[in-house]
């Protein structure tokens, strides 16, 4: 429903994704299974909140990663499976809804930093298919207070403390790298953006004219 964010932002995630591209997605599966198990154990209410739906299937596509995820949040046996590719034209025959966007925006959604209303005003996320399922998923995860880092760290018991410090240092580097890349991107594309804005404004006027003509001829 939003601007099709098919072009991923230039970000550390994208670079990491490109680096990972040679590895088959099945290698991810054990990690995903472990994460899902933890989330299921620590936040059973997420799946309870979705129980009103007949086993919805979500395709979650972080556009800056070379893979996508199929999420089936069944109350007893929730699963997430990585897929290397899918056909955007037919995916809604198997999935109820598709949520597409940069990994970091999807993480914001998962960890409750984006609320239900803002979701629909976000320029970053694109939603297709059953809107009701998506709203339910958003509400369910928001209510669960999922924090992926904390949920995973909880596995490590006494090691969680030192790991948390390492994660924080990593976050600083990540955030710095994100800023640097954004700066680089802006510098590269600035001239063409100006031109783009001018063309867009002309196009906008033309579309309005066509709409007015359409309405006139309809009446």
């Amino acid at each position: 429903m939003q601007r099709s964010p098919d072009v991923p932002p230039l970000s550390p995630v994208l670079l990491a994704g490109l680096a990972l591209r040679p590895f088959p997605v099945v290698m991810l599966q054990p990690v995903l299974d472990a994460v899902m198990l933890i989330i299921h154990r620590r936040h059973p209410d997420v799946f309870d909140r979705l129980s009103g739906f007949q086993n919805p299937v979500f395709l979650i596509d972080p556009i800056d990663l070379p893979c996508a995820f199929i999420l089936t949040p069944e109350t007893r046996n929730p699963r997430v499976v990585a897929v290397a590719e899918y056909d955007p034209k037919t995916i809604l025959e198997t999935a109820d809804a598709v949520i597409r966007g940069p990994l970091m925006s999807l993480m914001d959604l998962l960890e409750g930093r984006i609320d239900g209303d803002s979701l629909f005003f976000s320029r970053d996320l694109m939603i297709e298919g059953n809107t009701e399922c998506v709203v339910a998923l958003r509400n369910a995860v928001d209510g669960a207070e999922i924090n992926v880092t904390e949920d995973i760290l909880a596995l490590f018991g006494p090691l969680a403390g030192p790991l948390r410090i390492a994660k924080k240092a990593g976050d600083v580097i990540f955030s710095r790298a994100t800023q640097d890349l954004a700066f680089l991107r802006d510098a590269v594309i600035a001239p063409s953006m100006h031109r783009h804005a001018a063309i867009e404004s002309q196009l906008h006027k033309l579309t309005e004219k066509i709409d007015a003509i359409d309405r006139k001829s309809a009446t």
Binding site: R113, I114, D115, G116, D117, R138, G143, E145
Partner: peptide, 9 residues
């Protein structure tokens, strides 16, 4: 207002 809004809101 906003029971449908997230906890961040």
């Amino acid at each position: 207002e906003g029971r449908q809004r997230g906890r961040a809101y």
